[in-house]
Design a protein around this nucleic acid. Structure first.
Lengths: 145, 145
DNA sequence: TATGTTAATGCATCATTATTGCAAATGAAA
DNA sequence: TTTCATTTGCAATAATGATGCATTAACATA
């Protein structure tokens, strides 16, 4: 089971022409077990000093470029990362779903089931990507009160 | 005319319980003459050393809190500021319109005429605000080619 | 108009994040 | 196991966000 998962991550790396390093596998493992998008500072806390800050930064950058993860900016402008759905690839890398940023716990949820509706943008403007962030109080924080 | 405008900004400050200082008036003047949301670095360039970086930072922060300007994060997580429509106030401060971030010239446009459609968010989540950023190539950059 | 009070500013300073260069280490393939 | 390109760690820098404090400026009122 764990073996399977690991194999899966390794394949993912190889498929994207990346070497299977401990650091990369660890990042994939952590991200895949999170139910919300994850910031680099969070990853640094979990990982500790095993992986250098710059290395982590580059891993995330590489993963994003390859379409392995996507990046969401929360309300504070901090980058958060989540593993992409299978449909993403290096050159077709859209996460058309909505994100929810909790103002209390600061978590960023991927609301996969909520798509961004089509919009009428003034002509002359060429749309490449859309990013919708909803902020408020998340389910867990609501229930906690 | 210019006199009028200035009077208008001064009223705006007084209305919000803020003192009419040169720095604040200058910021309001610059922002109101821009056709897109403006970053602090841009303001620093235009203003020069007349206003301290921290002062500018605090002016923008105050203005945002009072609902005089709103803040949009572009694709790089940099804050950009634009003067609010009249309907904004300290406690009713929503800019429900869409923003367009040009990947070429990096400008952030307020698409005032495009509203964010209503969404069905999973229940349990309490929505406070929504922020939709469309990115691509803007009209001017398209025409320039 | 002078003056006292509060708000605003400038300067010093620090934290965090993003980013690059380069040498050393490591993975993968021959 | 040797080779070569990739990856990593370390050093270092830039940009941005943020706070404390002494000084200055705005404004109400005496």
């Amino acid at each position: 089971m764990n073996q399977n998962k690991n194999q899966q991550y390794e394949d993912l790396l190889v498929k994207n022409g990346l070497k299977r390093t401990g650091a990369r596998l660890q990042v994939l493992d952590i991200l895949s077990h999170r139910d919300s998008a994850t910031s680099q500072p969070y990853l640094e806390n979990v990982i500790g000093k095993e992986i250098d800050r710059v290395t982590l930064y580059r891993i995330l950058k590489t993963f994003e470029e390859k379409g392995i993860i996507h990046r969401v900016l929360d309300n504070h402008g901090t980058a958060n990362y989540a593993i992409c759905s299978n449909s993403c690839s290096e050159h077709n890398h859209h996460d058309e779903h909505v994100h929810f940023n909790c103002n209390n716990c600061l978590r960023v949820y991927c609301l996969d089931e909520v798509k961004i509706p089509a919009l009428k943008i003034a002509k002359g403007f060429k749309v490449d990507d859309m990013n919708l962030i909803v902020s408020g109080i998340c389910k867990e924080c609501n229930q906690a009160n």
